[in-house]
Design a protein around this nucleic acid. Structure first.
Lengths: 211, 211, 211, 211
DNA sequence: TATGAATGAGCCTTCATTCAT
DNA sequence: GATGAATGAAGGCTCATTCAT
């Protein structure tokens, strides 16, 4: 009967600990995005997980910590974490712009991404400004490359060009792609986004000729 | 031995005029926009007004009612109440668009408007969607008139055209023109807005020639 | 134009002061009897009078004082103040008992008396005990006289005899003759009272023969 | 340098057993019966239990619920719950009446029963009327049986007979057997009750002969 | 005398968190 | 790791009362 508890090898089984922790985060994301930090209560989160509220404290130090963990998941770079690949700088702008941003919009449409949007929104305006600034920063090298290669009007500052593309999408995200968006909202937003992207792609690149 | 003037009971002398009710609303706007409805406390509002908290209840039935009164002030038509006149439908689009929207942006830059922006933001996403929808509705007749007169590309649906103009502004408002925006933020936003408007005005109207 | 404000002579006109004061007491009686002292609010009383609440303080020093004034009206001798004449000691018991006590019950049935009953009731048990004790005290000489004249069984202590008569009436008053009693309640109570009085009158006096 | 044992947070050790819930109810009974529902404060109850006031809310949803739980304990059938057995219908009236009702009075004299009496009293008159009506209802079959067996005067309606017995006891209970009754009060009440019962038992049954 | 506006005290309740189990 | 019971802090609101008018 000498069965040694063989030392675990390879991937450990999804321990309950890990599982519960994640379920807490999921529940918290839902609740926080629906009610904001102050409006949410620890009880609501615990209830959604199906445990009593002190249970949360075995996994997180405080409500605050749960919230911050969530934020860390969402950003700092909201783009990357959303699974969107930045375009390689060699793709031509006119093609890349609609393609990439369509993928962004698609990503933003997922329930989880919408929940995060609401979450950040609720935090007040600073979070949003930062997020946009950050995205803008990430896109800058790509747009610069395009401009240098003459695929982008050079009578417009890069920053403006980026905002031209990103601004309406941000508006869309905030207005339509949030946690409580209906299917119709999402469809509407997608439509607007696609129309916008086509138009803006032409506008930004076509002008080369014009000039 | 400074003597603190211990707060008097009864009715205050007629000095502090500037109807307390209004002072409460102002204070509430500040506090709500900074902390959101749940994060704000009646005590904070009262303190900012310089009265004790039960005093608020002589003017409003509840915290909720203060909040709703504020919202009623902000909307339903956020445009009109912000002191922006809709363009007469006879002004040519290419001129009207930058002009009017610049005035909108100017209005949005005022502290009060920025506070309202934060307020609505904090309310969660539904409020925002509604607001935008509403603005869009108000602009529709104007844009339609332009299109009929051939001053606006007719290969774009009105709705998309409106979003083209409004979308980035909305994004701007939310990202930069909020209650805690710095002067730099505001300047930045103004710059982006102006660049955007010029570009978009050209884009939307130039097509007349193209066609 | 020398019209001296002629010094008032005779009965002063029912000044508003006096009138309001009484209306306050009436309103207070109603409210206190329905909700008890703690449950009643100054606002409710003022509202019933049709004035604002600080107005009450022109007539009474405090809520407490209104209440106490009311109590002073009700008793100490609840019997007398209710307009019931004690029987002259010469009336034969067998006739006097039903007659007098019927008149008591009638008096107790008036709305005002019922309101007072509720009032005292709400005050907690001490008020009641005192009231009963007091009534008992007032009746003692009359009953003693009867007993001395041989119109009342002398095998029963006066006190017991008094309780015999008064006890059920007290119960009746408390259970049925209160401020929110329906007409049916009052009728029922009256019926029980009359049956009781007849029976007890016989019992208390007839025994003379028996003995 | 006495060190006050500052109240510990979390769960208390399993010493203080005697289910807190019950201790709350006991404390509440005391406080409510002394001050009435509106006069009592949650703080007072908690203090009497020896816990902080939020602790109550782990056991009851609200002050109201505590109160109602208490009432449910008291009634609906105040007789039965007081541990008094109704007389079997076969016991002769003349013997049963004093016996049973003496036991009722004894029960009513216990501190707990007296507290309940005060409680119901404080609730306003309706509660009392209902209670009496209820007791009356429970006694009806017994009295009817007696009357049918000729042990009770049949020239009196059952209801009146019952009231004859119960009325003075009710009065006694209310006037003397309440939470703040002194020993003397209780003795006095007991004396009156016994005298009353003897007399009434004779009166009600003696008629058999008369008839 | 009456009132609008305000206040201190305090009430019921909720919340995040802690402790013993 | 989870839970029932408890706690300090604080929150929204009501109340009796007061003061200037």
């Amino acid at each position: 009967m000498t069965e040694f508890p063989e030392p675990r090898r390879g991937r450990p089984p999804l321990s309950d600990r890990r599982e519960t922790r994640d379920r807490i985060l999921d529940a918290a994301l839902e609740v926080f995005s629906e009610r904001g930090f102050d409006g949410a209560t620890v009880r609501q989160i615990a209830a959604k997980v199906g445990v009593s509220d002190p249970a949360l404290y075995a996994h997180f130090k405080s409500k605050q910590e749960i919230f911050e963990t969530l934020l860390k998941q969402a950003g700092p770079d909201l783009l990357a974490s959303s699974g969107v690949d930045l375009p390689s700088e060699t793709t031509p702008a006119e093609i890349a712009i609609p393609k990439i941003f369509k993928s962004i919009v698609a990503t933003w449409s997922t329930p989880r991404a919408r929940a995060f949007a609401s979450l950040v929104l609720r935090m007040g305006p600073d979070g949003l400004g930062d997020t946009l600034q950050n995205v803008s920063q990430q896109l800058r090298p790509v747009f610069s490359a395009w401009q240098e290669r003459g695929e982008l009007r050079d009578d417009i500052p890069v920053e403006v060009a980026i905002w031209q593309v990103i601004g309406p999408l941000a508006g869309l995200r905030i207005a339509y792609l949030h946690s409580s968006a209906s299917k119709a909202d999402i469809a509407h937003a997608t439509m607007l986004a696609e129309a916008h992207l086509e138009l803006i792609a032409t506008t930004l690149s076509q002008s080369r000729n014009t000039k």
